[in-house]
Amino acid sequence: MRGFGVFTTIALLIAGCGGGGGHGDPNPVQPTSTPAPAVTATPIPTVNLVLQLSSSVGVAAASFSVGYEAGRGSFSGSGAQAQCQLGSSDTLAVNDDDAGTLKVAILPADPTRAQNLALPTTLTCSFDETGGTVTTAGLRIGDKKIGVIDGNGVVVAGDSSRLDVR
């Protein structure tokens, strides 16, 4: 009986959808809305990648690039909106091209108080793993450039190998 009842209901619905009633049906069935199927979003796994920045010399400015496998995702947010945060209060600029390269540049927050960057520190960026797992060890650090204060008090290019990013 239970199965029969289900079948009956379906038949009535079909009749109603046909706009019936024109054939003398005394009890036309009013159409009813069909609930939209619920979409269940699959959350994109996001991980925080933490880079350690340090130097054995005073660094007045620094920049470098962070290479990643674009097939595995990209940093959360695009361009300057990439979600990155310094462990210090220094001034940070980032640019994620969403295609495998995040560019990073850092200046002192207030050179009148501290002419060099506050190192060591961390750079923490969130990464959307749309295509696989990404770890800090899998990032490629390149294009390192540092500025150091010379004898005249101006910032000039320094030995970039003295900046350690890992």
């Binding site: 007045a60 400015a61 620094a62 920049s63 540049a105 850092i106 200046l107 002192p108 050179p111 002419q115 450039k145 500025g147 101006v154 910032v155 000039v156 290019a157």
Partner: peptide
């Protein structure tokens, strides 16, 4: 243009 220029402008 690079971060060294930015540092000098900031200074």
């Amino acid at each position: 243009v690079d971060v060294i220029d930015a540092a000098n402008v900031l200074r």
